[in-house]
Every structure is written in C-alpha cells, then in structure tokens.
Design a protein around this nucleic acid. Structure first.
Lengths: 136, 136, 136, 136
DNA sequence: GTGGTCTAGACCACG
DNA sequence: GTGGTCTAGACCACC
C-alpha cells in the first residue's frame, strides 16, 4: 500500500494533485509497469473525495500514456514515460516557475541547489525501494 | 513601451500569463520601483483581451506585493520581491514540474542545462537593458 | 443554428452520440475551422440532457483534435481531421460491422450500395450548403 | 478446434469481441447449424478471461438468433442469420464509422477498397474451408 | 468486485 | 456569459 497526499488549499485541482502523486510513485519505482492501481473507490474513500474526482485523475493519467483503464478489471500501470506532447507545456511551466523563484530572492546557485535536492530525494526514494526489494 | 506576449492555447489562465510577463519585466529591470504600468485599458486593447482579465492580473500582482493600485491613477511598481507567502507554493510547483520532466525522459544534466539556459537568457536581457541605459 | 439528434435507446453513450453528430456537422461543412460551437448549457438544454454530459462530449472532441475549449470563451472548431491514432480502431470497427451486415443477409453489392448512398448523402449535404452560401 | 482472438486494449467489451469472433466463424462456415460451441469453461480458459464473460457472449449470440443455449448441454449453432432487429443499429453504426473514416482523410475510393479487401478475405476463408472439406 | 455513464446542483475561474 | 471542478448518488457494463 502506497501513500498519496493532497492539499485542498492549493490552487491546483484535486484530480491533478492525485494524478501528480501517482506520477511521482511511478517515477520513484513504487509503481511499475503491470502493477495495479488502487481502485477508484478505495482512493476516493482514503482521501475523502468523491469517486468521480479520482476517476478523472485516472483518465488524465490514461491520456498521458501512463496507465490503462479497463472496465471491470481496474487500472494498470503501462509505462513510465509521459507523452512527448506535454514537453512544450512543461518547459513553459519551468520557465515561469524559475523566474518567480528568482523574484523571491533566490540566486541561481540556490535554485540549482534546490533542484539537486529534489533530484537527490527522488533518487533516494528509488534506492530505498531497491534495497527493500533486495531483502525479499 | 514594453512588450508582453500571451498564448491563448496554453491551459494557463490569461490573467496569470499577463501577470507572469509583468513579473518577468520587473525581474529583468525593464520595469522598476516607481514606474507606472500601462493602463488596464491599453493592455487589454493591445492584447485583444477583456478589460476584466487585465484588471485581475494587476490585482494578482498587488497581492504578490509587486505593484500598488490606486483608483483613478493606475498601477505603480513597488518592488521586485514576491511575498514570501508564495515560497511554499512555488517549491511545490517546481517539484512537480521536475518529476514530469524526468518522466519525459530528461536526465538531471539536461534539466540543469535547461535551467542554466533560462538563467542566461534572463541575465542577457538585464545586461542589454543596462547598456541601453548607459548610452542615454 | 444547426440541429443534432440523439437517441436514448441506442447502446451508445449520449456524449459519444453528441460528439458524433458534431463530427458529422464538421465533415459536412456546416461547422468550419474558427466557428464557435453552441455553449454547453445551450446544447444541454436543447437536448434535455445534463450539462456535464455535453461537456464530456466537447472534451472528447478536443481529445480527437477537432475543437478547442477555452474557459470563459467557449468552444471553437480547429480543424476537420481526426487524429491518426484512431485509425486502427476505426478499421477494426468497420470490419466487425461489415461481417454483421453480411450476416444480416446483405450481399457485397448491397453493402457497396449502402456505402455509396451514405457517401452521396454526405456530398449532397455539402453541396446544399455551398449553394446556400453562394446565394449570400 | 477453431481459433478466436481478442484484444484487451480495444475499448470494445471482451464479451462483444468473443461474440463477434464467433459470428465470423459462423459466417465463414467454420461453424454450421447443428455444430456445438466449445464449452464456456474451455473458452474462458483458452482466452484467460472470466467464465461469466464468455457466458455473456453466448447469451448475446442467443439473443441475436445465432445459437441456442441448453442448460447442462452447451450451446448449439442454429443458423447464420442475425435477427432483423439489429439492422437499424448496424446501419447507424456503419454511417458513423464511414464519416469518421472520411475525417481521417480517406477518400471514397479508398474506403471502397478497404471493403472489397475485407470481403475478399471473408470469401477466401470460406473457399479454403470448402476445399479442405472436399478433400475429406 | 471493477470502471463508466448520467443526473442535479453547487461553486469557482475566466473573459 | 463561458467552461471547469467537485459532490452525492443512481444505475449500468463488465470481469
């Protein structure tokens, strides 16, 4: 069982937050190609949101090419690569975020550090997982 | 007269794009503390968007602590620092964007390069501006 | 104002029927690139279905690359070509439908006639439209 | 033993795919009036699907007038004609599929060719079968 | 049990 | 005014 967190106060739609968390789990390796996602109902219940909201998150992930949905048999991870169509969008988003960080007073070095930190966290999550699997 | 660009095809609100562009201009130094922003009407007309949309962008900038609005006398730049309240939000956003970029297939090095490139562009814009002002 | 028809008794989702009808209107030329679709609310009201159902149809059309949705300013036709990704699916569907028609007792000639008939209807709809526009 | 193929990735219900394949076998002559269908259990096992799914396919075929189900003694082919009740539905489906194929960029000639090709494949399957039976 | 469709209706974001 | 998000809950299709 894997944990995902959402924040109702963010100006980001709940369904996008759910999808983003699942993308993270896939990227970290906690969910792999072939794995089943928790059912829409279970996630909705765990997070205290409506069933349709989770369903919308799953549909978004399907559109991005990360999972496959099948009526009656749940959702399955199909890969860990986002469709290239999203590339332009993501770069644009990165550009805006960087400018705003600089405006918060961060220097280029500090931003680089933040990114290294994030990268390290992701790698760490991956390694921990690999160790745990090695033990089994 | 300074130029700002918006893209109707992005899934980012127009008002946020406008605000983002103005933040960039402030960051680059094209707009400085004390400068007046173009009137809501003029910007709306230039960009072919609704007057309310521009007004909303200006209100957002005020909330972020970058401009001051005075009824009847337009908007004035008050500083180049975003309120610290936005820090958590921006870091969260950076984290999500990075994961998605990695999932697009980018390596850590490539992402670092992209960031260096963006940073260089911003510095370049600042320097060009300084030169031009030096000439006057 | 253009008319679209749906049938609640068909085993085809309402939203797919709505999308299919709009695809037909685009193909016939009654809706062209740049044209606005009727609002979600208006269509929902006209057809007596829920607002969300129409919204789902519009989202499907967006996914197929035929329209673009923009919050606050409605839905716009962007082209008349379906994404190539749907090709395999459509051919499979054609194959199945043909076999079933043969099993209904139709001969190859009769099926060809049916297709000619459909094709003629579509061309006719296009020509009528062209004439009407020629008059203006 | 006859082969049927299903594709889990299509957005067409498994039970409909199974029924469709059996209709094809009947149409091609590989299954004739009086022949027994493989047992629900055997098919379910062969295809790796749930027993209920195959049972549902058989029920659909019964409804279409192609097989007869007898509790305890399996399913028997009763004819090769689909009930006329399905005619309207099939024509409707053909119409929608054709429009979408045209929107993919196919010309009328190309669609006619695709249909000829399908027809030829079906005839070929029938002839091969007749030859094999002639040898026995 | 699973996901999919649809409804009725609230509220938000946007132009 | 527009489309977008979310809820609560019903019912269907599928495995």
């Amino acid at each position: 069982m894997v944990l995902i967190h959402i924040n109702f106060d963010l100006p980001i739609p709940i369904y996008e937050q759910i999808a983003s968390e699942i993308r993270r789990l896939i990227f970290e390796g906690q969910l792999k190609a072939g794995d089943s996602l928790a059912s829409v109902r279970q996630v909705a219940n765990d997070l205290g949101v409506n069933l349709n909201t989770v369903a919308q998150a799953y549909r978004l992930l399907e559109k991005q090419g990360l999972v496959q949905l099948r009526r009656g048999s749940g959702a399955t991870v199909t890969g860990n690569r986002i469709h290239a169509a999203y590339e332009g969008l993501l770069k644009e988003q990165l550009r805006r975020t960087l400018i705003d960080l600089y405006m918060l007073g961060y220097t280029d070095q500090e931003v680089q550090k933040m990114i290294d930190h994030q990268h390290a966290l992701l790698l760490e999550a991956r390694e921990k997982l690999a160790e745990r699997e090695g033990e089994n």
